[in-house]
């Protein structure tokens, strides 16, 4: 049972105070990532002066920040030196292949944070205070940031998603990746099936990130770009599989991309 709902023990305001100050945890983690604290801790030796020097920051600031991070379990402090916990070593040190540090740039993006300053108003009206269509406003630059920084969070699911879509199919096939973003899911299909040809659909600046990722994966010769609005662009095709990832939830039922995009013939949609 959640502590706030527990009938056991005396009531205390801890949960309320914790929620009122939760912004401190977000800000502390974002600051530590921005200052490169986790790389400094990983490289050692972990004393205050070394970390402060690496981060070009004051010793007082680093001490209080690192002590705060220690309280919340993403650093360990022993004998006046800081070192990684297993979590920070794996997911926060930028030298780790599983580092998620870059996603702070998207999640912590001003456009993603600003609406929370007006959440009561949003609840009253039932819609974002962001202009136009909010996150899906045409050519919204946050999706370039998404494509550039969120790949570490999405990469682990690319291989299993690719295997699910392919179902062992090894022959020629065409795949449409709607709202491709970083492009990793379509790219993974091209990696697993050397006869697959993938078309990424997204805004042109976003697709440049996807194409760069296709180059890194060595599949750029089988990666085509279809820039534009997913609701308006001609898909071409036909396709053997369609990816529609991390997209549906941005829309209401009546404007769902599933209803609007697929009156056109486009066989075998997936994911």
């Amino acid at each position: 049972m959640h502590p706030g709902n527990s009938a056991e023990g005396p009531l205390n305001p801890g949960l309320v105070l914790e929620m009122l100050q939760a912004h401190q945890r977000t800000a502390a983690l974002k600051a530590a990532i921005d200052l490169d604290v986790f790389r400094a801790v990983g490289e050692g030796p972990g004393d205050l002066a070394s970390i402060a020097r690496h981060c070009s920051a004051s010793e007082r600031g680093i001490r209080i920040l690192c002590d705060f991070l220690t309280i919340y379990g993403v650093l360990i402090k022993e004998d006046r030196r800081y070192r990684h916990t297993p979590t920070s070593a794996t997911f926060l040190d930028p030298c780790s292949p599983s580092s998620l540090a870059s996603i702070a740039q998207f999640i912590g993006h001003q456009a993603m944070r600003d609406p929370y300053e007006h959440l009561a108003e949003i609840v009253r009206t039932g819609r974002t205070v962001l202009p136009g269509d909010g996150s899906v406003e045409p050519e919204n630059p946050i999706w370039v940031q998404f494509a550039e920084t969120m790949a570490p969070m999405m990469a682990p699911m690319a291989a299993p998603l690719g295997a699910l879509v392919l179902e062992g199919h090894a022959g020629p096939m065409r795949v449409l990746d709607i709202a491709a973003g970083h492009g990793l899911f379509g790219i993974e299909i091209a990696k697993q099936n050397p006869h697959a040809r993938v078309t990424g659909l997204d805004w042109a600046p976003v697709l440049r990130v996807a194409l760069d990722n296709a180059r890194k994966a060595g599949v750029q010769d089988r990666y085509d770009m279809l820039p534009g609005d997913a609701f308006e662009v001609d898909f071409g095709g036909p396709y053997d599989a369609v990816l529609l990832t991390n997209f549906l939830h941005h829309f209401g039922w009546s404007s769902s991309p599933m209803k609007i995009a697929f009156p056109r013939p486009c066989p075998r949609p997936s994911a």
């Binding site: 609840v123 819609r127 269509d133 909010g134 829309f251 209401g252 404007s255 209803k259």
Partner: peptide
Amino acid sequence: TMLAITVAGDAYTLSQLTAMYHEAGFG
């Protein structure tokens, strides 16, 4: 997140997603 940054986005259950797929002609 969907409340904060979208006009009408939401968190959909599997049954809702299944209905969306069916409405679009997929089974």
